[in-house]
Write a protein that binds this DNA or RNA. Structure first.
Length: 366
DNA sequence: GATTCGTGGCT
DNA sequence: TAGCCAAGAAT
């Protein structure tokens, strides 16, 4: 039986940590959830960041906190309002679980987040990654985080091909754990939290999935592959057309828009509002008001929005297959407080029916 | 262990 | 245009 010889000496962990943290201190992006002392804010940012790009989180984070500044405020809010503030971020189960966890903490733990990864892990919506991230970043626990960035960095560093099974995950976990610094008594800085964020920052800004910026990498000299990286094949994308109705009516000086409420018992975005979907054959030969692309998981929807034709909506309005009890006229100025699907929100904003709320820009550093 | 759950920016 | 995939968790 052939036995694989050790391919390389193990990484020089202290050297790696020094190079990484030195780089991080001068290159870290300034993000709204960096350098905060409230663990609730760290929690919120980590949940929002699950499978979601930083830029998308930046547009939602401040607004959500303004509306729900504390765990208590979040716990007391109706779920629909929590979903409304989440609208556009996707994976709405995250918002429901965050809300449930806030209610649990308020009722059972005096509204205080636990400070260890093991305890955090028991809360709804907090898994392996998020528990380690909050524990290290907010509380200084010495525990490694493994997200997509960390996995990619470590696979490239060690030259190991991507492997989705338990052995592959165990390998990455072991590598990550070997690199996290220990907690030191009396240390004012947060070594583990900063190290973890630095690993992710490296993956997000230098060790990119395609065309990594190896010449700017602080640990280039310790890297086995320097960019080459075997990955598994991804599932194919689909393309599908989709059509929706825009129907407006005046109420004095105000305007109402017709929305459809998605059923509570469907798996995809239950209990959320969208523009009424139209059958494809109802819109043949018509000219849409708006065309846009909208991706849901592995499907690209080529969406067209059509205006109801006559003043009484006699045209397309009747082609809406939904039952009347699912259709609701909503004042346009109330749209911001409704749980809209991301697509509905995007379409209503582009059609100038709904106001675009600009994210607060971070202070500019000259 | 495999599936399901959204979205948008980049190329 | 169409493919890629990101600071994952729950079931």
């Amino acid at each position: 039986m052939e036995r694989a010889a050790p391919r390389s000496a193990t990484l020089d962990a202290p050297l790696f940590r020094r190079r990484l943290i030195t780089w991080y201190r001068s290159h870290a992006r300034e993000l709204p959830w960096r350098n905060v002392s409230d663990p609730y804010r760290t929690w919120l940012s980590e949940v929002m960041l699950q499978q979601t790009r930083v830029a998308a989180v930046v547009t939602h984070y401040n607004g959500f906190l303004r509306r729900f500044p504390t765990i208590l405020a979040l716990a007391l809010a109706p779920e629909a309002e929590v979903l409304a503030m989440w609208s556009g971020l996707g994976y709405y189960r995250r918002a429901r679980m965050l809300h449930k966890a806030a209610q649990f903490l308020t009722q059972e733990r005096g509204g205080v987040l636990p400070s260890t990864a093991a305890e955090l892990r028991t809360l709804p919506g907090i898994g392996e990654y998020t528990s380690a991230a909050i524990a290290s970043i907010a509380f200084g626990e010495s525990i490694a985080v493994v997200d997509g960035n960390v996995e990619r960095v470590l696979l490239r560093l060690t030259g190991r091909p991507e492997q989705k099974d338990a052995a592959g995950r165990a390998f990455v976990q072991k590598q990550a754990s070997a690199l996290v610094p220990n907690r030191r008594k009396g240390d004012k800085t947060n070594a583990a939290g900063d190290h973890n964020q630095a690993m992710m920052e490296l993956g997000a800004t230098i060790c990119l999935p395609h065309a990594p910026l190896c010449l700017q990498c602080p640990v280039y000299g310790m890297c086995k592959t320097r960019g080459e990286h075997l990955t598994l094949p991804r599932s194919a994308q689909l393309s599908r057309p989709a059509a929706y109705l825009l129907s407006l009516r005046k109420r004095g000086t105000l305007t109402e828009v017709l929305l459809q409420l998605r059923a509570d018992d469907i798996s995809l975005m239950p209990g959320m509002y969208e523009l009424p979907p139209l059958p494809q054959d109802a819109v043949q030969g018509r000219e849409p008001l708006l065309r846009l692309r909208h991706a849901i998981t592995n499907t690209n929807y080529y969406v067209q929005v059509y205006a109801a034709s006559g003043p009484q909506d006699r045209g397309l309005r009747r082609a809406v297959p939904a039952s009347k009890s699912d259709l609701h006229w909503v004042l346009t100025h109330r749209l911001g407080s409704l749980p809209l699907t991301g697509l509905a929100r995007k379409a209503l904003q582009r059609l100038d029916v709904m106001k675009v709320d600009l994210p607060k820009l971070p202070a500019h550093q000259p």
